[in-house]
Design a binder for these strands. Structure first.
Lengths: 332, 332
DNA sequence: CTGAAAGCGCTAACAC
DNA sequence: GTGTTAGCGCTTTCAG
C-alpha cells in the first residue's frame, strides 16, 4: 500500500483553508467561491494530492466499488459479459472487486461475506447457483444485487438480466423436430444449477409432449475433451440431435463426430447455447442460440447503479432478446 | 454499502473486554488468554460480528487487495492467466480489484492512479504496453508491481513472469524454414506494444540472417474476421508461412484459407502463439507455441505476495518454459 | 495478558 | 461561503 504523503490536511494548510473546503472542492461541491476553489485546485495540483479512497469510504460509507461474482474464470461467458459490466462501471466511476465461486476452494457464502466486509456498494452475481445461506447473507445485507445472464430462480429477491432460456431451448428442439430428428440429447456442464434444472425441465416437457422415447441428459460436460469423448456415448445411445450449454463442448462434439465419420447435420444436429466468440472457429459452423452478452452485462451494471443510488427501476427483471442463428450443424 | 450493525465496540462491551482485545482475537494475535479469547469468539459468533475491512484498511494501511490491470476483457489470455492469479490470491486472502486499459476510454495513468487511491497493496500488470507517465506513477508509488505474461521492457523496474517470446518465435520460424517455406508473415494485434516490437525485431533479424526477400508484418489483426479476411492479402503477397500472436485470428486464417482451397500445411503453414484453449477447436489442428498461462499467473501472484510482505525474492524476472506443440498446420 | 488513548484520512452536520 | 468538530470502525503503541 502506498505510504501516504500528502493528505487533505496538507492541502488545507498550504491553501490556507479548512479541510472541509478542500473536501468540498475535491467532491465538486458548489458551495465554494471560485477564487477559493482555484487556489485549492492549484495547491492540489502542485502537491500532487490524491484522495485516499479508503478514508473516503470509511467516512462516507460508500466505496464506489461493486463486487462481481463469477463461476470460474475459464468460463468464456465471463469475458464477454464482463466487458459490458466493466464499460458501464467505468462510466459511472465504479471499481470492480472480482471473486469466483464454484471451484471448491471457498464456499459462496464466504465469498459473499468477504465482499460485504469490503463494503461494496452493490453486487453483480454471474454464477449459476447460490446456496441458501449465501442468498440469506445477501438479502440480510441490504446491498443491491443484480443477477446477470443466469439464475432463473431468485428473481423475486434480486434484480436480473437474462434471456428466456426455456423459450430458446424449446425453439431449438423445434428445429430438430422439424428436421425429423427424434433422438434428443441435452448436454449440461453442471446439473445442479438452477439454469440446468430449468432447461432439463423444459427439455423433458418437450419430450413428453411429443411422445419421444429415446432421449438423454448428459451432465458434467464442460470442456472440449469431454464433448469430444461424449460422441462415443451418442453412438451407443443413438442420439441424432444435441443441445449444449457451452461452446467448447459443442466444438468437441463436432470434431469428435467428424472423426468418426458421422455426418453433420445429416446424422447429427447440434445447437450450442454458448454464444461466445469461439463458436466461429468451429467448422461446420455451429448453429447457436446467440445471447447479447455484452448488452446483458451492460444492462445489469446500469440497473445496479440505479439501485445503488436509490433511483426508480421500472422493471427489476429484464428479459433480453436472443437470436437463433442457423449455421451448418442443423439442416435447412 | 451494508449499513454497519455490529462493530468491534459492541463485541467489546458484550464480552466485557476492550476493543483492543477484540481486535487481537480477530487478528489472531496470541497475546490473549484462552478464556478471554473463547469468550470474545463466542460473542462474535452470537452477534454475527464481521469486521469492516475499510476501517481495517485505514487503520492498518493494508487493504489485502491487489489491483489487476488487463488490456481488455475479451482477451482470452486474460481468462486463463487470471485463473492462476485468482487461485493464489484466494490462498493468501487477497482480493482482486480489476481494471482494464487500452480501450480509449481511460488512459493507463488514470487507471493506475485510481488503483493507488484505493490503496491496493500490490499490482499485477497484464497489459502489453504502458505509458511513461503510467510507469512513473507506478514507480513513485512504491507499490510492488509484477508484470504477468507480457512486456519485455521494464523488467528492471518491476517483477515479471513470462516466456522467452523471442526464442519461441525464432524456433517457429526455424520450423518454417526447415519445411522449405521462404515467404514469412508475422501477424500482430497491436503494433505499438513492447511485445510486438520485440517480436518484429526478432522476425526481421531472422529474415536478414537468412536473406529472405519476401516477408510481411501485418498489424491490427485481433479478431477472427480480421484473420479470415487477411488470407486474401496473403495470396497477393504470396505468403506461405505465418505466425500469429492470438488464436482467434489464427483460426480465421485457417478457415479463410480452407475456403479458398489453399491447402494447409502444404501451401500455407501457421503457428499461433495464443495458446488458449480455443486453439483446440480449429481444424486442422493448430501448431502452437504453448505457454503455461495458468502457471504464469500463479507465479506472478505468488511473487507479488512476497514483495508485499517484504520477503526475499531470489529472481524478480522469471522466464517460464514453453512448448512448441506440433499440430497439423505445419509439415512433419 | 489487557486496557486506554491516539490516530488512520476523510466526510458531514452544524455553526457562523 | 467557510470553519469547527465529531465521528466512520479499526489498529497500534504504550502503560501497567
Amino acid at each position: 500500500m502506498q505510504k501516504q504523503e500528502i493528505t487533505i490536511y496538507d492541502v488545507a494548510r498550504e491553501a490556507k483553508v479548512s479541510m472541509a473546503t478542500v473536501s468540498r472542492v475535491v467532491n465538486g461541491n458548489n458551495n465554494v467561491r471560485k477564487e477559493t476553489r482555484d487556489r485549492v485546485l492549484e495547491v492540489i495540483d502542485r502537491l500532487h494530492y490524491q484522495p485516499n479512497a479508503v478514508a473516503q469510504g470509511l467516512a462516507s460509507k460508500k466505496t464506489t466499488t461493486v463486487g462481481l461474482i463469477v463461476p470460474d474464470f475459464s468460463n468464456l461467458h465471463f469475458a464477454e459479459l464482463s466487458q459490458g459490466i466493466n464499460d458501464i462501471a467505468t462510466l459511472y466511476k465504479y471499481n470492480i472487486l472480482l471473486s469466483s465461486v464454484g471451484n471448491t476452494l471457498v464456499g459462496d457464502e464466504r465469498v459473499i461475506q468477504n465482499l460485504l466486509n469490503k463494503q461494496v456498494d452493490g453486487i453483480i452475481y454471474m454464477a449459476d447457483q447460490i446456496s441458501e445461506k449465501g442468498k440469506e447473507t445477501l438479502i440480510r445485507s441490504n446491498v443491491p444485487v443484480v443477477l446477470a445472464g443466469t439464475l432463473s430462480e431468485n428473481k423475486a429477491d434480486f434484480g436480473s438480466v437474462a434471456i428466456d432460456y426455456a423459450k430458446a431451448i424449446k425453439e431449438a428442439l423445434e428445429i430438430f423436430y422439424e428436421n425429423s430428428k427424434r433422438n434428443f440429447a441435452l448436454v449440461l456442464d453442471n446439473e445442479e444449477t438452477y439454469l440446468s434444472e430449468e432447461l432439463e425441465h423444459t427439455f423433458n416437457n418437450y419430450i413428453n409432449e411429443h411422445n419421444l422415447s429415446n432421449y438423454h441428459v448428459y451432465g458434467n460436460i464442460s470442456t472440449y475433451e469431454e464433448g469430444y469423448d461424449l460422441v462415443e456415448q451418442f453412438e451407443k445411445d443413438k442420439i441424432d440431435a444435441v443441445i449444449t450449454l457451452k461452446d467448447m463442448p459443442a466444438g468437441g462434439i463436432v470434431n469428435g463426430a467428424l472423426n468418426k465419420n458421422i455426418s453433420i447435420p445429416e446424422q447429427l444436429e447440434i445447437i450450442s447455447a454458448g454464444s461466445t466468440n469461439v463458436a466461429k472457429l468451429v467448422r461446420p459452423q455451429l448453429t447457436i442460440i446467440q445471447q447479447p452478452l455484452y448488452d446483458i452485462g451492460a444492462m445489469a451494471m446500469r440497473m445496479l447503479t440505479k439501485l445503488m443510488n436509490n433511483e426508480e427501476v421500472e422493471d427489476k427483471n429484464i428479459t433480453m432478446p436472443y437470436d437463433l442463428k442457423a449455421g451448418k450443424t442443423t439442416l435447412g
